[in-house]
Design a protein around this nucleic acid. Structure first.
Length: 271
DNA sequence: CCACATGTTTCATC
DNA sequence: TGATGAAACATGTG
């Protein structure tokens, strides 16, 4: 599923592929996937700039923005010619050059928004996990401002944005922290280790073009490679790569949560 | 047919 | 008020 690394890869590829392109035509196949708060398709406008916050892709136009969230199964594929599959195609933009920007989404949860102001959409999105604001200090303050199970904390996009189920499990494993540990019970050194592993893991995943478990694809319809480097996610019942214990899977916050009961025991818990 | 998967929002409950 | 849990969104897969 697209989390920060996958969204970052897509954003970077879009930067190279569609920046300066001029929108010629909108073809909205599944209207619910396109939320136009301006009520006017941005035709004849140039793609000026691409950026990202958390799992949102932001496309800057002359006086407005296209903002995309892929949710679980959304894909953006760029084609040079109109010879693409229409299966699960929800929206297609044709550029003057003849290129196509296609938004596919099997589950129909993904959204593209056309807005004048980013605040309405991004107001509740927390500190991006790869931004300069995500420092050991800002992390520490947030951890202590709330008292939640650390896995639930990491998944809450209003606090830190970018981590999803896969990278949360990976980062907690690398840090030797039990996902059920309460955020206020993390020692200073464990919090610092976790902060470091979040940044390290996300960057490594970006280098590997993201993680393809089921639906994620790059804009050239390619797969990511980081699924081959996962240490706990999806490894229920298999041996821990660190200590040989069996990886277990529990339900936390309604999410499948994988961890090693030996490496991630009560470390970091003060009481 | 049933259970389950992931992200987010919304609503109910403690 | 804040943490938590369930439901809803919609579909594919085992």
């Amino acid at each position: 599923m697209p989390e920060l690394p996958e969204v970052e890869v897509i954003k970077n590829e879009l930067q190279a592929k569609i920046r300066d392109e001029i929108i010629q035509e909108f073809n909205i196949i599944w209207p619910k996937s396109f939320v136009d708060t301006i009520n006017k398709l941005p035709l004849d406008e140039k793609i000026l700039e691409l950026s990202r916050k958390g799992k949102y892709i932001i496309i800057k136009l002359k006086k407005s923005f296209l903002v995309i969230h892929l949710r679980m199964t959304g894909q953006i594929i760029i084609y040079n010619e109109e010879n693409f599959s229409k299966k699960h195609l929800r929206l297609s933009i044709k550029f003057n050059s003849g290129k196509f920007f296609n938004f596919y989404d099997a589950r129909k949860f993904g959204r593209m928004y056309h807005v004048e102001n980013l605040n309405n959409i991004l107001a509740n999105v927390g500190i991006d996990a790869l931004s300069e604001e995500f420092t050991p200090q800002s992390f520490y303050i947030l951890l202590n401002k709330h008292n939640r199970k650390i896995k639930a904390f990491l998944l809450d996009q209003r606090l830190i944005s970018g981590l999803g189920n896969i990278y949360s499990d990976e980062c907690l494993f690398l840090s030797g922290i039990n996902p059920q540990t309460f955020s206020q019970n993390l020692s200073d050194s464990k919090a610092k280790t976790l902060h470091n592993n979040i940044i390290k893991t996300l960057k490594q995943a970006i280098k590997n073009m993201g993680t393809t478990i089921s639906d994620y694809k790059t804009t050239g319809a390619g797969f990511g490679g980081f699924q081959n480097h996962l240490k706990v996610y999806g490894r229920e019942g298999l041996s821990c790569l660190n200590c040989n214990s069996k990886i277990i899977k529990i339900r936390l916050n309604g999410r499948g949560t994988h961890f090693c009961p030996t490496c991630q025991n009560k470390n970091g818990v003060i009481n």
